[in-house]
Structure formats: C-alpha cells, structure tokens
Amino acid sequence: MSVLGSVFSLLSAGLFVAMDAVDVAFTEAAVGAGVSLVFFLAALALTEHEETPVTRGNVFPLLVAVLTGVLLIYGLLEAPPFGSADAPAHLHVAPEYLSKTEAQIGVPNIVSAVLASYRGFDTLGEAGVIFTAGIGVLLLLNGGLPKGKGRE
C-alpha cells in the first residue's frame, strides 16, 4: 500500500515535468516518493497493518464523494481552458516576475528567485511549519525515550 503510494507520487512527478514544473517535480519525487514512503513504512512497522473488513455499507461514502465531485465540477465550469495564455492567473504578478527577475535578482531559475526573494517570507513560514511538525512528532513519540519515562 505505501509502495503503491510512492509509485503514485513518482507518476505525479512525471506529470509535473510534463506541465513545465521541474522544481515541483524534484520535490515531489524526493519528498512524496522518498521521505513519505519511509514515514509510512516506519508507522506500519510500529503499528499493525491488518484491517478489519468494513462492516458498514460503502454506499454512503460513495454518495458523499460523488455529490462533492458534482459540486466541484459545477464550480469549475467557468474556469479558463487548460493551457490558455490569457487566463487571469497569468495576467497579474507573473509577468512582473518573469520580466524583472534577471535585473533584480540575477538568477536564471525564476522559481528559485520567487521562492527565496520575492516571497521569502512564505518560505520562512514554511520553515516554521517544518520546525513545528518536527517538535510535534518528537513530543508525540516521546523523543524516542523508553516507555515509562515521562509517560503515564
């Protein structure tokens, strides 16, 4: 199951390359296919992998999922067609980044320029999220201490 998830991440990384997002594909392949596989395998090793058969019917979850999907499609009916250059998403700040990166930042990779400079505070917040998650995992798993030390 976790290995299938890893394969899924790798396939989606391929899709990202096809849609010109090479940096995202690197990250997805490393994080989604690599690190999260390790996490899932570790969690499964620490717990159990047997699932009791689902007793309640599958009709209700299916119904909820299909209904939500229909609502989402309804919401997307007015979205711009795939790949169009004049979609609203491409008209606001992206042209500025594309035209000014060379003069203002001077690195060829625009994604790095935006990530580290134009939107550096976002990246600082991201580092904060990783830090918080690391502390949370350490606290939840008791820092690897043996049972009975600081735990009821």
Partner: peptide, 19 residues
C-alpha cells in the same frame, strides 16, 4: 514561460503536506 507562481506555492505546499 509557464507561470512560475503556482510552482512556488506548490513547492511550499508539498513541504507542508509531508509535515
């Protein structure tokens, strides 16, 4: 060029997702 802004946002989102 394709729009770099969504790429940046999703780079951040992937890291948040793994956290």
């Amino acid at each position: 060029f394709s729009n770099p802004l969504p790429h940046v946002l999703i780079l951040t989102a992937i890291v948040v997702a793994i956290s």
